[in-house]
Design a protein around this nucleic acid. Structure first.
Lengths: 342, 342
DNA sequence: TTGAAAGCGCTAACAT
DNA sequence: ATGTTAGCGCTTTCAA
C-alpha cells in the first residue's frame, strides 16, 4: 500500500491538515508535533504527491521549454543552462521542440492549457503574428529567449549581437585593417540583422565607409561561407579583413582560403561569431565572439520563476541583453595569443 | 472561469461521467450524445486536465530522461530521438541530468516516487551497485540506454561497439594493412572495453596477432589522441594503420600527424569511431563508424511506452544492440570515396 | 446508454 | 496549535 498523507497522519496521531502544514508551513505547527511528523514521514518514506498537490494548488513546479530544434551544441547549451538553474530551484523541466508537423503555437497552447507547466521559456527565432498574439493573451508567464526584439511588450532575454559585431569590427580596425568586408547571415534572421547593423555602424563610427561589393550574403552554413569567401577574394580590389557573421561560415571560409592559397591572417584577417567548439580547432584558431548561451537559459529560468512566484510583475515587459565576449585566436592577426588546442 | 468537465456536462445536458466516457471510451456512449459532447467541448475549447486525470489514473503521459550530462551533440542527439518519438506518441518528456551534487540514484528515486513520470529512460555509463539495486526494485518501468551490458536482468538498448570495432579493423585489413595499432579509450569505460575486444578479435580472426606496443591508451579526449599518435609513430617498428577508439582522439591524431609530417592515409591509415560532426570536416575526411544515437533514444522510448502500457512484460529483461555503420572517408585509403564537405 | 457518487492525495478556509 | 471539511477535475465502480 502506497503511503499517503492519511497514513502519516494516523501514525502521528494528528489530522492530515497538520501533516500538510508541518511539511509546508513550518510556523503554523508546534515544533514538537512538527518534528514528530517529519520523523514519521521519513520513516514511512513518505513523499507528498506533486500531482495531488498540483490539483489543489494549480502549480506543478515544472517549467516548459520550447525550442525550434533539438540539434547541435547550441540548443544543448541552452538546455544545460536551464536544467542547472531549474535544478537549483527544485523545478522540473519539460522539453519540447516545435515539431515540423505542427506550429509552434500549438505546442505552446497545449503546454499552457494542459496545466502541466507553471510557465514557459520560448525560443522563436522568427516570430509569427500568431505566436505574438497568443503570447500577449496567455495567462501563464512566458519568457522569450534569443528571439527578435521587435516584440517590445514581452519578457525577452537576448544576446547582444549588435555590440558584439561592433567589437569584432573594431578589433579588426585596431589591427589597422581598413578594407573590411562582411559575410552576412540570412536576411530574415534577427541575429544576422543585428550583426550586420553592428558591422555598418562600427565602420561609420570609424569613418570607414562600407563598400557594397564587400557585403556578401551567406546562410550561416559552411558551404555558403566557402562561396562567399571566394566571391570576396575574386574581386579586383580585395578586402584586408572579413567579419564573418558566424563560425560555421568561417569554417567554410578557411577551407576556401586553403583552396585559393590565401593565408590567414597574413593575407586576410578574419573574425567570426558564436565561439562554437569547432572554432578552437581551426588553424589558426579562430578569433570569434563568445555568446553566453547557457547563461541565457539560466537567466531566463530565474526570471521566469520570479514571474511565477509573483516577485516580478508578469504583465510588465522586460528585456535583458547579455554581453558577448571576444575570444582571441590567431585569425585576426593577434599572433602572440594564438594557442593550439593541443 | 476555467471550463472544466462540469461546464461541458451542463451545456450538453448530461452527467460528467458521460462526458468523461465520451472523450475516452467511444464505445460506451451513444454516438449521437458522443458527437454532441465532442462538439460542445470543442466550442468551449475544453481540454481535460492531465493533472486531475493523473490523480485518478496514476498516469502522467510523461516520461523521464536522466542523462549523465547535458553537453555536446551526443546527448542532444539522444534527446532529439526521444523527443521525436515521444511527440508521436503524445507523451511529454522531462529531462534531467544527474547533477554533480547528488547521486544519479537520488534523481531517479525522486522521479519515480514523485509520480511525475510513468517511466524513465536512464543513461548510466558506469553503473554503481546502488543504482543497480534500485533498478531491480523499482515499480515503474526503466529502460537503460548506452549502459554497460553486465546488467543482464534489465531492459537495455545499446550500440554494437564490438561488431563496429571488428568492422573498422577488418576494413583496415582489407586495405592490406597488417600492422594495425589501436588507441584505446579509458579502461573503465564500457564502450572503450567493447571496442577494444572487437579490435583484438578482428586481428585474431584474421591471423594477425596484436602487439603490446601497438596498444596505447587514451581518454577519449583530443589531447590524448595527439600524444598516443606520437607514441605510436615514435616506435622503431611503426604500424601501417591505427584504429582509434573515438573521433575526438582521431582529431588529436590528425594534429599530431601534421606536426610529425606524417601523411594520412599514405603513410598511415586511420579509422575512427562515433561519426561526430567534426569528422566530416577533417582533411582527409575521417573514415569512421556511425553510431545511431538518436535511433537509440527513439527505440528506448518505444519500448518504454510498451512497458508502461503493459504490452510487454516490464519485469522481463530485454536487450537490443543497434548496429553501427561504416562511413567511408579518405583516412583509410579509400581515396575514391573521399568527398570534401564543401 | 446514462447517472450518482466515491475516491485519487493534497491544500486551505473555517472552526475550535 | 490543531481539526473538519470542502474542494481541485477527473475516472470508475455500481445502479438504474
Amino acid at each position: 500500500m502506497k503511503t499517503n498523507i492519511n497514513i502519516v497522519a494516523e501514525k502521528a496521531g494528528v489530522s492530515i491538515a497538520t501533516v500538510s502544514r508541518a511539511l509546508n508551513e513550518r510556523e503554523l505547527v508546534k515544533e514538537e508535533t512538527r518534528s514528530r511528523i517529519i520523523r514519521i514521514a521519513k520513516e514511512l518514506n513518505y513523499k507528498p504527491s506533486p500531482i495531488a498537490r498540483g490539483l489543489s494548488t494549480k502549480t506543478t513546479d515544472t517549467i516548459g521549454v520550447i525550442l525550434p530544434d533539438l540539434v547541435g551544441e547550441f540548443f544543448m547549451d541552452i538546455i544545460h543552462g536551464i536544467d542547472e538553474e531549474a535544478y537549483k530551484a527544485n523545478r522540473y523541466v519539460i522539453i519540447s521542440s516545435s515539431h515540423s508537423q505542427r506550429d509552434i503555437v500549438e505546442t505552446l497552447i497545449e503546454f499552457m492549457a494542459s496545466g502541466r507547466v507553471d510557465g514557459v521559456i520560448l525560443m522563436a527565432p522568427q516570430m509569427h503574428k500568431k505566436v505574438a498574439d497568443f503570447l500577449t493573451k496567455s495567462k501563464r508567464p512566458i519568457v522569450l529567449i534569443n528571439s527578435c526584439s521587435d516584440l517590445t511588450d514581452m519578457v525577452n532575454f537576448q544576446i547582444d549581437n549588435y555590440l558584439g559585431a561592433v567589437s569584432c569590427v573594431e578589433h579588426l580596425i585596431r589591427h589597422g585593417n581598413k578594407e573590411i568586408a562582411i559575410i552576412k547571415g540570412p536576411a530574415e534572421n534577427c541575429d544576422a540583422q543585428e550583426r550586420y547593423s553592428g558591422f555598418l555602424d562600427a565602420l561609420h563610427k570609424n569613418n570607414l565607409g562600407s563598400k557594397r561589393s564587400f557585403e556578401v550574403s551567406g546562410d550561416f552554413g559552411i558551404k555558403s561561407g566557402y562561396h562567399a569567401f571566394i566571391e570576396l577574394m575574386n574581386q579586383s580590389r580585395k578586402p584586408d579583413a572579413i567579419f564573418i557573421s558566424n563560425d560555421m561560415m568561417a569554417i567554410g571560409a578557411y577551407e576556401a582560403a586553403k583552396t585559393l592559397g590565401v593565408k590567414i591572417p597574413q593575407d586576410i584577417a578574419i573574425v567570426g561569431f558564436d565561439d562554437i567548439y569547432l572554432s578552437k580547432l581551426l588553424n589558426p584558431r579562430l578569433t570569434t565572439m563568445h555568446v553566453p548561451i547557457s547563461e541565457l537559459g539560466a537567466k531566463a529560468v530565474n526570471y521566469l520563476l520570479k514571474m511565477i512566484s509573483g516577485e516580478v510583475d508578469s504583465t510588465k515587459a522586460y528585456k535583458e541583453v547579455l554581453s558577448t565576449k571576444l575570444v582571441i585566436g590567431g585569425s585576426c592577426g593577434c599572433s602572440n595569443s594564438y594557442q593550439s588546442f593541443i
